[in-house]
């Protein structure tokens, strides 16, 4: 078909976490510009399978930008050259015919490579488990709108809640800091009345877990905000700091 592209892919191949890994070059010929990036990889994989070679492993699930499963560090940027989209929403028309595309996994000690381009992002789950929840007693269903919440506050909380845990913030950060993710998860609850009871316990527990997982320090470069497919803003990080310092320096820890 006319208009199709011939590309060269430099893909990170690594058998398992213990393997050293390295780049392998593949030809991706006759790629339609209307394909998504993952569809292009599917085709490359089909060709590899036909040749009885091991297909390239990468994470994916919903393929419509809402699940946070897909990752890929493409040509030096997480989720590729476009902003505010995930890799599954990236189309091949964003590349040009004959281009060499380098595909790497997220790089962070807290995200060890499982195989090829798939990394273990359970560090995020453990941070969530440390405090990213509210405790609600069972009982009757409360009436809707029983607790008034100003529109701006609700909107801000929902903005924070759009985080899909993909890990692009960590991948983009030169320090591999998880500050944007952690702060979004803290903010979505800290902004709302239901999250107040555990607000200061939560921020301390989640930050402690973030540090224990071995993520770096945030140095406010702002790379995470630019690369986040959901546009989570740096304001969240500053909100986390306010809550954290407030908890550590000014809140009661015990009855005295």
């Amino acid at each position: 078909m006319s208009g199709n592209m011939n590309l060269t892919l430099k893909v990170w191949r690594q058998k398992n976490a213990a393997d050293k890994g390295g780049f392998v070059t593949y030809k991706a010929d006759d790629v339609s510009p209307d394909m998504s990036f993952l569809e292009m990889l599917d085709i490359v994989n089909e060709r590899l399978v036909k040749k009885t070679e091991d297909p390239i492993h990468f994470d994916h699930d919903c393929r419509e930008g809402i699940c946070g499963a897909c990752s890929l560090y493409i040509n030096g940027r997480p989720h590729g050259p476009k902003q505010a989209i995930t890799t599954c929403q990236l189309h091949m028309r964003s590349f040009s015919d004959g281009e060499t595309i380098t595909i790497e996994p997220w790089r962070a000690e807290a995200f060890p490579v499982i195989k090829d381009l798939a990394v273990d992002r359970t560090a995020f789950d453990r941070i969530q488990e440390a405090g990213g929840f509210i405790s609600v007693n069972t009982g009757g269903v409360p009436d809707a709108n029983e607790i008034p919440i100003p529109k701006v506050v609700a909107d801000e909380a929902f903005n924070s809640a759009t985080c899909i845990q993909c890990g692009a913030c960590v991948a983009a950060c030169k320090n591999a800091s998880a500050a944007l993710f952690v702060s979004a998860k803290i903010s979505q609850l800290a902004l709302l009345p239901q999250g107040q009871t555990e607000r200061y316990r939560r921020v301390q527990a989640m930050v402690a877990q973030m540090d224990a997982e071995g993520f770096g320090s945030c140095t406010n470069t702002g790379a995470c905000e630019v690369e986040c497919p959901k546009g989570i803003s740096l304001t969240n990080i500053n909100r986390m700091r306010r809550d954290y310092f407030n908890a550590k320096f000014f809140k009661e820890e015990e009855i005295h």
Partner: peptide, 12 residues
């Protein structure tokens, strides 16, 4: 600490 958080860097 930050350099320990990413021991293997990016090629690009």
């Amino acid at each position: 600490r930050n350099s320990k958080a990413r021991k293997v860097g990016y090629a690009v």
